[in-house]
Design a binder for these strands. Structure first.
Lengths: 146, 146
DNA sequence: GTGCAACCTCAACCTAACTTGAGATCAAGC
DNA sequence: GCTTGATCTCAAGTTAGGTTGAGGTTGCAC
């Protein structure tokens, strides 16, 4: 007799805190795969709890579902992420967090220069011009924000 | 003869780089107000260029249109932001940027602890448990992420 | 007085990440 | 074998910040 390695969608929902509708949505998006009973009900593997964990953590780190799917798709056939996978992926996540922080810090620095200036001028404001190739094409500022 | 203080929506679009459709959308949302000609065409004030600048900058700083509207609504009747307004508003923007950075830094710190751990466990992972009142209610983790 | 670009409204579409509801079926305890 | 809760599919709705298109006017120059 095979141990009951399979769980229902409701069970998976209870174990992860994710709504049933969301799990179906993830399946539709290819982030999860389910077997079907004779009566067409989904049956998940216990390891899918871990897979959902991964999705939740990655989401919390700011990855879009499509990106998460890409990461998961890189894993050999439906395998649950191992330690090595997780290390690779989490380093890449760290990288993107670093970039977000750097961008926000740049913005903050520019904003600081801008407080008390208040020119709000499309031609002069450093908030606009710092990295955009702005102005300088005909009269009046155009297509200012990249 | 009154100087032509009024500009068309196309002119406003050209001067700000914002699409005509977006300007109409902003008007609909209450961020801009327009006069109408006898033939029902919109006419904006020149000062609305400045108003749109403000919207663009605020957006770039990560404020939602609804928040921007609230800021603009605090100004006496359709007035364009003055230096004093801008100072107040930009300080509050700076505050929200600070918060975003702080949150990202916290996440990064937790992620660092987590790289090389790879447990991905809903019960043990620090990425989950750092600030959520998680676990500890019955068997299995539930409603884990706040 | 006409031609044409710019303008008008209104409805529908777009992405992301889901939720909600209707109507039908399944699984399991008693 | 029946009841009840869990599950199924499919369509539509949600929020944000718009864009696109159809079908119809306006306004200005020649």
């Amino acid at each position: 007799m095979v141990a009951d390695r399979f769980i229902t969608i409701g069970e998976l929902a209870r174990r992860t805190g994710v709504a049933v509708s969301a799990l179906r949505f993830y399946e539709e998006k290819g982030l999860l795969q389910a077997l079907r009973t004779a009566g067409n009900q989904r049956r998940f593997l216990r390891s899918d709890i871990r897979r959902v964990s991964f999705i939740l953590i990655a989401q919390k780190l700011g990855l879009a579902l499509a990106e998460i799917e890409r990461e998961l798709a890189d894993l050999p056939q439906g395998r649950t992420p191992t330690l090595a996978d997780w290390e690779r992926i989490s380093r890449s996540m760290r990288n993107s967090i670093d970039k977000k922080i750097a961008l926000l810090e740049l913005t903050r620095r520019k904003l600081d220069e801008c407080i008390g200036c208040g020119c709000l001028s499309l031609t002069k404001c450093r908030l606009y011009n710092a990295q955009d190739a702005a102005g300088a094409q005909g009269p009046g500022p155009r297509f200012v924000l990249g």
